[in-house]
């Protein structure tokens, strides 16, 4: 078991899957000769060549469409989009084509692509490089959407996504690529469905996904120091979503905070609260609280950016509120 960075975990998954199956290719802007903006494909161009590590022009909609077309003929493309903001340009091929082809062909065609992209605010990248957009993909039937919070899932979920027969959207985060964690030395697959209890607790459930799991974990530490036992739940997969694990945790703690870096409106938190109301309304002691981004485009100014995006103290404050401590 070695401790590796998130980007190294993604690179290792690419390397293993490229070695395993000649039908696996990677495509995206600057992923080959330049090694990838976040190094997720570094060295692979030299190892697998330009036909399998494909540097694309800046044409998100069409290179994603080319990956989708190739997947319909038996290939397994891993498509990198440099920022989730740019994925908006590829929504036609992702949502109108990849997500619908299996259904509208009556199950006769399929698009086993993987689309990886970082979504999230990082360091003053301003409005057009800071979008999250998870909720948009989450609301689209025909897709799988996963949000690995650390190196183990980043590695194991990418490997599963390549093998899976459905189009899989993997939402990473700019602030997580250098985060380190343990990944087994032997080949490991992590399932594309199922929420995970990453910290067991009894007094309150803190629900996060992607980067916001780390805000929940930091808040749980502070709560522990105050004598509160917080359970932290990582959704891992936004589509399909694991209703059972959410219900079981709420039935245990009776209090819920949902932390999302996205805006709140028609968002992940809204969906989780709906699920809780449908599954276990009477288990709730008090109304759930959402921690989320301000309802504005992300500003450039450092102080304003910090104010727009939730942090661990915001999660802590929300937890204290549902606990009736404020």
């Amino acid at each position: 078991m070695a401790e590796i960075a998130y980007w190294e975990a993604i690179r290792r998954a690419h390397d293993e899957e490229l070695a395993n199956d000649r039908m696996v290719i990677a495509m995206g802007e600057d992923i080959g000769v330049a090694g990838g903006t976040y190094k997720a494909t570094s060295g692979l161009y030299q190892k697998y060549g330009p036909d399998r590590i494909i540097d694309t022009p800046i044409s998100e909609n069409s290179y994603t469409g080319i990956g989708i077309g190739a997947s319909m003929a038996g290939m397994r493309p891993i498509i990198e989009i440099m920022s989730i903001n740019f994925a908006l340009l590829a929504l036609d091929t992702l949502i109108n084509a990849a997500a619908k082809i299996r259904y509208m062909s009556g199950g006769r065609a399929s698009c086993p692509i993987v689309m990886r992209t970082p979504g999230g605010t990082a360091h003053q990248l301003a409005a057009q490089h800071s979008a999250r957009l998870a909720r948009m993909f989450m609301s689209t039937p025909g897709l799988r959407v996963v949000t690995p919070r650390g190196p183990l899932d980043a590695y194991g979920m990418l490997k599963s996504a390549v093998r899976c027969n459905d189009p899989v959207i993997i939402i990473e985060h700019e602030s997580m690529y250098n985060m380190r964690g343990e990944v087994p030395d032997q080949e490991t697959f992590r399932p594309l469905e199922g929420a995970e209890i990453v910290r067991v607790g009894t007094d309150v459930t803190l629900i996060g996904y992607n980067y916001s799991v780390h805000l929940c974990l930091a808040a749980a530490e502070k709560l522990a120091a105050m004598g509160v036992s917080a359970e932290v739940l990582d959704l891992r997969a936004l589509r399909p979503i694991d209703r059972d694990t959410i219900r079981r945790s709420v039935e245990k703690t009776h209090k819920v905070v949902i932390a999302e870096e996205d805006e709140a409106t028609v968002g992940v938190g809204s969906e989780i609260i709906s699920i809780i109301i449908e599954e276990c309304f009477f288990a709730l002691d008090t109304q759930p609280v959402r921690v989320h981004a301000a309802d504005v485009p992300v500003p450039y100014n450092r102080q304003m950016e910090k104010a727009a995006i939730p942090n661990a103290d915001d999660v802590l404050a929300a937890a204290l509120k549902v606990l009736g401590r404020v």
Partner: peptide, 16 residues
């Protein structure tokens, strides 16, 4: 039917 693969391999899908 046909929204996702109706017979997925549990090794890739889960649950956990």
């Amino acid at each position: 039917l046909y929204c996702l693969d109706d017979h997925p391999d549990p090794r890739w899908i889960g649950p956990l």
